[in-house]
């Protein structure tokens, strides 16, 4: 998670803190590592979900986390595509910078909801229902 968020933070901060025309050469090369981290998030997330399915699936915070995580990953993919298409003198548009800022907010929401999952569950085991 820290790897994925970390790379997004680096790209977003670089996008948001520069106005120079030659902004982000090579930043798209960080994304293979980013998607490797995303695979780890998926595998560990599925394992945690399988371990305590009722705990997660009965908690609305879980759905908020998944929604913000998936949206943040879609935005990461869109930013990656824009970085790959850009040339060395590309000046990034306001929409790309808005996406970067939105992505940062979504990652913060993902982190908060992920942490709050451990404190907001009302059901631990599915056996409670039968």
């Amino acid at each position: 998670m820290a790897l994925v968020v970390g790379i997004n933070v680096a790209v977003s901060l670089r996008l948001l803190t520069t106005n120079s025309p030659t902004t982000l050469p090579g930043f798209d090369k960080l994304y293979p590592l980013h998607w490797l981290g995303a695979c780890f998030i998926f595998i560990s997330g599925v394992a945690l979900l399988l371990a305590y399915p009722a705990k997660a699936l009965t908690n609305p915070v879980f759905y908020l986390k998944v929604a913000s995580l998936v949206t943040a990953l879609i935005i990461a993919f869109k930013i990656q595509m824009r970085l790959q298409r850009s040339s060395s003198d590309t000046r990034y548009s306001l929409s790309t910078k808005t996406l970067a800022a939105f992505a940062l907010v979504l990652w913060i929401v993902t982190i908060f909801t992920g942490r709050f999952l451990a404190y907001t569950n009302s059901v631990l085991l599915a056996s409670r229902f039968y």
Binding site: L3, V5, I7, V9, A10, L13, R115, F116
Partner: peptide
């Protein structure tokens, strides 16, 4: 949980800048 979340955000800032 709020302070734990902030702790993780700080970690992500560190890893995103120093780590990268």
């Amino acid at each position: 949980p709020v302070i734990e979340s902030l702790h993780f955000i700080g970690l992500c800032l560190l890893l995103g800048t120093v780590g990268v």
